[in-house]
């Protein structure tokens, strides 16, 4: 609450307001008042109506209830989901999985070559170096010859699998 609101609460009532309050109190106690102000009578009437005047008569209550029952529609029970309803998503998932497996198998078969690649043949120099190493010689010449052959083999394989 603001400071301004507190000031408003502290204001003293005027003499006119005090007279109206007294007349209202008298009207509520006795039902009449000596020259009561118009707005005080209206307020008293409203308060009395609030105490007992707003109650419905028994006949009126019965009439309202009868009308309400006659016009109310019973709630339609929700139809139960058909038992096969779960088959729709399950079927779609199964179909997707089957299609996927077929696609992967087909792709794999298409990509996997049936036979080994035709690789470059080793040179006679390489094979002589290999024979010399197997006969107890140094492997330096073999390894040097293998470097060139290795590069040619990998080139061929990269070309084959780049498709």
């Amino acid at each position: 609450m603001t400071e301004h609101d507190d000031d408003w609460l502290d204001e003293e009532p005027s003499e006119e307001e005090l007279a109206e309050a007294a007349a209202l109190a008298a009207a509520l106690e006795r039902g009449t008042a000596d020259a009561p102000p118009e707005d005080a009578l209206a307020m008293a009437a409203l308060l009395r109506h609030g105490q007992d005047g707003s109650a419905l008569s028994e006949e009126r209550r019965d009439a309202i209830l009868t009308e309400a029952l006659a016009t109310a529609r019973p709630q339609r029970p929700r139809a139960a989901a058909p038992w096969w309803r779960w088959l729709v998503p399950a079927g779609l998932v199964t179909a997707a999985a089957a299609a996927g497996v077929v696609a992967v198998l087909a792709a794999g078969e298409a990509e996997m070559p049936a036979t080994a690649a035709q690789l470059p043949a080793p040179s006679a120099a390489l094979l002589r170096a290999q024979a010399a190493t197997a006969a107890g010689g140094d492997a330096t010449a073999l390894d040097a010859a293998m470097r060139a052959h290795r590069a040619a083999v990998l080139d061929r394989l990269e070309e084959r699998y780049a498709r």
Partner: peptide, 29 residues
């Protein structure tokens, strides 16, 4: 939603097939 899932699954499979070629190239390298 089921159709979207189906499309997503097939896309993943196609990508997986494509990744096979890339994996071979990487392996050889």
């Amino acid at each position: 939603t089921a159709v979207l899932r189906l499309v997503l699954l097939l896309s993943v499979l196609v990508l997986a097939a494509g990744c096979g070629e890339a994996a071979t190239a990487t392996w050889l390298e």
